[in-house]
Design a protein around this nucleic acid. Structure first.
Lengths: 164, 164
DNA sequence: AGTGCAGATGCAAGTCATTTGCAGGAAACC
DNA sequence: GGTTTCCTGCAAATGACTTGCATCTGCACT
């Protein structure tokens, strides 16, 4: 693929560092501990699962994955923990259209999402140029951006002449 | 304010034409009738209310406003009608963070939204440059945009040196 | 104006994702 | 090891819609 103008202008997956998810889980755990949050088996499992996830699972899916480590874990604990983790800035919650909230750990660089409306697949991208334009627009109206949400709902584009 | 590069690059409110909301309501009604949708008192009231709204009311607020014209109108009718109107492309539904869905008639040009996180006020803006960048990003990854969502959650920016 | 009926309405009950009250359980600090 | 809190599981509650059903009503056709 042709060289993009800056490191932000490529899919986030290509920017992923080689860090093992185990290390990531430890960093997340440490962040929580520093914040005075008690590390229970349930939370440790959830952090583990979140650290290992390279997709965008929802609460029910995270619950299912966490049950492998903590069999009796309850869905409300998952929800409660996710809310708490989000408050600590350790994970991000995304509310895409027509689906339950999806989560991802917050260790990657900021990025936005593109959702394939046919498959539901979530892809990541980012564009410094768009970010700058957004900030500029807000500034012109006398505001500063607290956070933003940008989602592209897309469908595969077939090359002209291609069939099927 | 300094001249923006194109008519899109200004708050949508400044682009509002002088059309009376009565005319707008008639156009919306006509569009529905053409689509074979039955125009009941309830729907007429809702179209009226939507045509007159210059804010972004939610279903409950629309219900409250519609009750002035059709006292017994039920909330489920409001919901059902809003879904139907959205299907006809006559209104737009926006799902901002942490609030019930908000609606607006679809007669204005495409625009995005900026939400003041302190007051909840919704403002409109649009940027052709951002739209073009979005399309370009999707295209580079082999997709075409079906629709997109861009929301800036902002807070008033105080001029440097200002207190309070 | 009268008639028929598919589509619309109101009400109550249901759904779905998420939150919360409560009593027992278990991290953390002594 | 004993407490002190915070956390957990469960069940019930919530909020925002949606839907089943019996009744009603636009509106096309007399």
């Amino acid at each position: 693929m042709h060289a993009p103008p800056n490191p932000c202008e490529m899919p986030a997956m290509d920017r992923t560092d080689g860090t093992k998810t185990g290390k990531r889980a430890k960093r997340l755990t440490g962040a929580l501990r520093d914040a005075g949050v008690r590390i229970t088996r349930q939370r440790a499992a959830l952090l583990d699962v979140l650290a290992a996830a390279d997709d965008h699972p929802d609460a029910v899916e995270l619950h299912r994955r966490a049950e492998a480590q903590v069999p009796g874990i309850s869905l409300s604990t998952v929800y409660r923990t996710l809310t708490s983790l989000e408050g600590q800035g350790v994970i991000l919650r995304h509310q895409f259209e027509g689906t339950p909230a999806r989560f991802e750990h917050a260790e990657a660089e900021h990025h936005d999402h593109m959702i394939d409306v046919e498959t539901g697949e979530v892809m990541e991208f980012c564009s410094d140029r768009i970010e700058r334009l957004q900030a500029q627009i807000a500034a012109e109206l006398g505001y500063e951006i607290v956070h933003h949400r940008m989602e592209l709902y897309v469908r595969p584009r077939r090359a002209e002449g291609e069939s099927g």
